[in-house]
Nucleic acid binder design. Structure first.
Lengths: 198, 198
DNA sequence: GCACAATGTGACCGCTTGTCACAAGGGCTC
DNA sequence: GAGCCCTTGTGACAAGCGGTCACATTGTGC
């Protein structure tokens, strides 16, 4: 359910960038493959955001969904790893679009430290703990080789991080109060292939 | 359901890399947060893969799941975009681990064409159609800026691609027989934050 | 004012998931 | 080989969620 709200957020953000200012449940349905009735039901459960005969105002709906997800403010995150993937993440506008601020980029490689990526400069890995504390960071993103993933996760968690996004292939052991989100494009691809072959 | 099978695949692949050769439903449950009974039920629906009192043999279970998902062979995919994200994808072992072969990397930028990434060399964008046909490609991965995403998607689909992985932020309009998988780390992050705050 | 478009909502069905309980089978120790 | 423990395989059942039809309601444009 909150998963669906996130999808709406994604579609609305894009629709807004394309210059639209309102959207119907049917249009959201076309992009998300979520039933239009379901969408209206989801939204109407929290209030009456739409206008009958017209649709939803994109700006106000974005605000409402952010309010529901309680993710309105700025959120600081830490990015570990300034390799190709780390650079790709840091230089993408994708986080900023949603109010997420990459507060610090760290790497263990002295050759990478000091280099600018995005509008940040790569910090030494040893400053991780201070960076997490000073910026009130509860989300860490791992863009490191799988060998170093567990160690980096441990260090993040030690410093106070509660949510880890793992872009390495490693399986992470973490305490029960820490959430790990792993994203594996290859597995998603196999999953997509399965449905294609059906 | 197939989604859960994919998760198992992910865990098993990693467990294997860590040198384990068997695993119990409880262990899979610890890593996936999927109920252990559910896991046994999922698997037993397709056959009796485990040994009571022992667990599952990782190699044979991997084979069985691949058989169920019908994703045993090699699959060729096309990667459009040789920027930082494209490079990160191309040089990652993640696809190869699952039998997915990046057959071709394309870019419109003449400066990038010819450069090696991974063990491939970047091809001119104009060769897309031939590459897709010659390699029997039905999956295309978009690692391009959002401005070019729709055009690239159109070209891929024209050439015969049926599954598009969209790593840009653009919303894609595609024919009904084409599946789009979008992955937006920022939205996933907001989703994770939502649960953390609960 | 009328037709049209789109939301908001009730009712209902079926599928999926979570859970308890327990029999059955394999391995280990003594 | 007997007994014990571990883990799978499976039945039964409850609960939740998603999909769908139907329809009243309300705003827009002609």
């Amino acid at each position: 359910m909150a998963a669906r709200l996130s999808r709406y957020l994604q579609v609305l953000t894009q629709a807004k960038k394309m210059g639209k200012d309102r959207i119907s449940s049917q249009e959201i349905s076309d992009y998300t493959n979520i039933n239009a009735t379901q969408i209206r039901r989801d939204l109407s459960g929290f209030g009456k955001f739409g206008k009958r005969g017209v649709g939803y105002n994109i700006d106000s709906l974005l605000g409402e969904i952010r309010k529901i997800l309680r993710t309105q403010g700025q959120h600081n995150i830490a990015l570990v790893g300034a390799g190709r993937l780390g650079q790709a993440i840091a230089s993408s506008p994708i986080f900023a679009e949603h109010g997420i601020n990459i507060a610090v980029v760290l790497d263990t490689d002295p050759d990478k430290v000091g280099h600018a990526i995005g509008n940040l400069s790569v910090q030494p890995y040893a400053t991780l703990r201070d960076a997490v504390r000073d910026n009130n960071i509860i989300v860490g993103v791992l863009a490191v080789p799988s060998e170093g993933a567990q160690q980096a996760a441990n260090d993040l968690i030690d410093a106070g991080v509660k949510i880890v996004f793992n872009y390495s292939t490693a399986l992470l052991d973490v305490p029960g109060d820490v959430a790990v989100h792993a994203s594996n494009p290859a597995v998603e691809l196999l999953y997509a292939l399965y449905f294609h072959l059906t």
